[in-house]
Write a protein that binds this DNA or RNA. Structure first.
Lengths: 248, 248
DNA sequence: TTCTACGTGCGAACGGCGTTCGTGTCAAGT
DNA sequence: ACTTGACACGAACGCCGTTCGCACGTAGAA
């Protein structure tokens, strides 16, 4: 030991000074992963980072999840569990379905782009199943035929997920909150307005309309379109009532 | 040279025996990338693989594309160029719009999961703009107010893209062609039917309905829902015509 | 109490990714 | 013939998801 002040022998030191804050469990991993997604976005989520945040190595996570996809799947289901279930006892089923759609979108939007993992996979987690069950109960209770209810449910989910994902993407692109996407949209509007008018007369003329409306307005437009359309399929024998409340 | 038959000195040999088949250009890169996506899927597309297929190194691609995202964006636009434009001179605009939606889906589905790159980004390639322009011309020609046309156009694109992506994902999961997804769907149906009936009465009862219908049927259901809804927004002052052809 | 056997947590390594840097190569201009 | 410029691209950097096998802690046997 000639050299002065060896601070610590290189071996025997590398214990874990902060050590495991929790004894490590699937739930703790999910909570940590969710926190990271909320803070840094889905693309920044890696097994290494989750493990590091837990004070361990990436390999340890594979004791609880077969792979990253399984972790993401469970993460998504946990978030879906935050969505309040629609009630089939509501007096106005149309309003109830729409309200539930808005709530779903809100929950997804509250977790940045986590919703991206929901694309292209039939959700089979317990919370997803509970939600689907509740929504189907409402639709069937409204007298919508099974086939229409199943397909409509599918389409509603798709629209909700796609819209939430698009909102998230726009928010990241403008790298700001909902309010800060205005400059980004203005940029698009100006770009459209500057196109050659002889080749793109409609795009130029509609440049302001293309970026009009907040994400919420556009979303509720889409949901109204779909739900009102579904409502027209309910009790087709009573269609002469011309059920045209809602949409504009 | 004592040892027998030195086949070739290790240096000076590594020329390119097959050599550059084409002098390398953005178009050639895109063609190669598209071929790889069609053959192996989007996830298997890497800069290295594209370059290798062209007999060069990955670094060379960066002369034509700033990064992988730009390559994918241009790839998507090239494919969108294959979609025939809807005509605003068609006698029945509703049928024309629907036909165009089907055509779009067909084109996307013809290229495996390439459509995944379309998510969450407003398409601004030249072919995308041309398509949007043509579709807007039809909708405005039908008397749909600008705001509704813009939002409706957006929603239609979203549904087309989301549906094509979902179809692609299901096709990969069943790792077969469209026809081979039947066992996969049967598996889902059986799983749903086996759920505890007291907690999931509707899911159990609707298990057959949930997987009913081909991708095409479900897609045209969704498109009908949206387009017929949009049609109801056209010339609201003439609504008493009760324009209810289509849906069901 | 001591020794052995076992289960498990995890560091290190593997192969692959997107991207960058600096050099090699060759054609056109002088 | 020489210079100059642009293009091509091998090698390397720092990530990624995943796997392997060792070291460690504990429990049961002797």
């Amino acid at each position: 030991m000639p050299s002065a002040a060896i601070p610590a022998p290189p071996w025997r030191a590398p214990k874990k000074p902060p050590a495991a804050r929790q004894p490590l469990s699937a739930g703790a991993v999910l909570s940590t992963a969710l926190r990271l997604v909320d803070r840094d976005g889905l693309d920044a989520l890696s097994m290494r980072r989750v493990a590091q945040e837990l004070g361990t190595g990436a390999a340890s996570l594979y004791a609880y999840f077969a792979n990253k996809d399984e972790l993401l799947e469970q993460l998504l289901d946990r978030v879906i569990g935050d969505i309040p279930l629609p009630s089939d006892a509501a007096p106005d089923w149309i309003a109830e379905v729409k309200r539930s759609c808005y709530a779903s979108r809100d929950v997804f939007c509250a977790h940045r782009d986590l919703v991206k993992v929901a694309r292209g996979s039939i959700p089979i987690g317990p919370n997803s199943l509970r939600y689907t069950e509740a929504m189907l109960a409402v639709l069937r209770g409204a007298g919508i035929p099974d086939r229409i209810a199943a397909w409509g449910m599918d389409q509603l989910s798709m629209v909700i997920v796609a819209d939430a994902a698009e909102s998230a993407a726009h928010a990241e692109r403008g790298h700001g909150a909902e309010a800060d996407s205005a400059p980004y949209l203005n940029q698009i509007r100006d770009y459209l307005a500057a196109l050659p008018i002889d080749e793109f007369p409609n795009l130029v003329a509609m440049a302001p309309a293309m970026v009009e409306g907040s994400g919420d307005e556009r979303f509720s437009f889409a949901i109204d379109l779909m739900v009102d359309g579904l409502a027209r399929h309910a009790r087709t024998d009573l269609r002469d009532y011309a059920h045209d409340g809602g949409a504009e």
